[in-house]
Every structure is written in C-alpha cells, then in structure tokens.
Design a protein around this nucleic acid. Structure first.
Length: 214
DNA sequence: ATCCCGAGGG
DNA sequence: CCCTCTGGAT
C-alpha cells in the first residue's frame, strides 16, 4: 500500500474512534500486565469474565502471592492455557516483588524477562500503562497488516517494524487500538464485513469485492 | 473445524 | 522452523 493510502486508512479509523481504549479490564499497571499475559489464545470477553472478580480482590503482586497458585487457577479455569498461565503469573509476581519493589518495570528488557511475557505483551504494557508509541502485534494486527497491505510480513516482528516505519508518527500510539478493534469487529478472520468497512477504499485486500455482498 | 490482544521450548 | 498448552464461542 502506498504511503498516502496508509495515511488515509489510519486517519479514517482515527476519525471514527478519536479516543480508543483497551477492551481488557484492568485497574493498574500490574493488573494490565496480568490481563494481557492471560489473553493468549483467548478473547477479551473471556479474560474479563475471569479477571473481574479476581482483580476486585487481587491488584498487586503481593496479594497474588498471598492468594496462591491453586486459587488463581480456579479463577482462570475458563480461559485456555490456564495451567501455564497460573504458573507464569505466580512466578512473575514473585520477581516483581523480589527485583522491582512490587512495581511493573517500565523497560522492555525487564518486562520480557518475566515468565509468560514476550514482545507483544511488553509492547501493550509499554503503550497502555506507560504511554510509549509501541506497536503490539496480536493475531488481528498481524492479519490486517497482511490482508490490507499496510505492512505485509511473514512474522509478527516484521509486521511490527513495518507498521512502525509506515504509520504516521502522530497516529502511532493509538494505532494499536484502532487496528485491533477494526480487526475484531469488521476485518474479522472468517467473514470480513467489507459492507460495513470504513476503509474499503484504501484497502488492498484482493478479495474485498467478493466480501461485499449483503 | 477454526479462531481468540502468545510464549517458550525443541 | 515446528510443536505444545487449552477453554469457550462460532
């Protein structure tokens, strides 16, 4: 996609949703970190359903350690990969207490050193909790990067770097939300809703006409 | 059967 | 690169 089309694409999404926000529920940087760590291969709706009662009681790593892995597992049983996630959240909470004064570190290296926290999760925390213009590439953004032609790439890292390079800087920080929401509700994996698409014009999806039926 | 705000291990 | 972990929704 040409630079002008990329700008038109993102500017249109910005126009529709001037103040985009995360649909994951959280009350502070720690609960955001936990929520994102729990979101692998799960829907936001499913994660929120599990974390709502949890975060009402547990909103610090100290409280998580006091809760214990068994009880945490009960809270997140309905989310996929719950066993690994429960272990990771406990281990990560212990590290926050031991090495970071119970706070969520504000740098990528320290975040990615936490168990269960990779580049994508670190990027979300840096962006949402600390205001950095990172681009967290999840399943939706990876699909959109390739499907629309904004930033094609074989890996999530390639798509991330492509987006960082091609998106206008002033739109960078919020683009994470615009793209993810567009992917979730319009440019869906199975049946992209090209009829309701606000960026049909600049989009380079080869099959877009085929999905505009009614 | 496929997808959902992935990460870690081999 | 591949595989595994995993319940819930469609």
């Amino acid at each position: 996609m040409k630079p002008d089309a990329v700008r038109a694409f993102i500017a249109r999404l910005a126009e529709i949703n001037p103040e985009p926000k995360t649909e994951l529920e959280f009350v502070n940087a720690y609960t955001l970190l936990v929520a994102v760590a729990l979101s692998a291969q799960a829907t936001d709706v499913g994660v929120n359903r599990a974390t709502r009662p949890l975060f009402a009681l547990v909103d610090t790593p100290q409280k998580m350690l006091a809760l214990g892995e068994e009880k945490l597992r009960d809270y997140i049983k309905t989310i996929g990969l719950f066993n690994t996630k429960a272990k990771n959240v406990m281990a990560l909470s212990q590290i926050l207490v031991d090495r970071h004064g119970g706070e969520v570190p504000e740098d990528r290296e320290a975040l990615e050193a936490l168990p269960g926290v990779g580049r994508k999760t670190a990027n979300v925390v840096l962006n949402v909790a600390f205001g950095q213009s990172t681009m967290a590439v999840d399943t939706h953004i990876f699909r959109l990067g390739n499907r629309t032609g904004i930033a094609p790439g074989k890996t999530t890292l390639a798509v991330e770097l492509g987006l960082l390079k091609r998106l206008p800087p002033e739109y960078l920080r919020d683009s994470h939300h615009w793209l993810i929401l567009h992917g979730r509700y319009i440019c869906k994996a199975r049946k992209p809703d090209c009829n309701r698409c606000p960026v049909y014009e600049p989009c380079n999806f080869p099959d877009k006409a085929r999905y505009r039926t009614a």
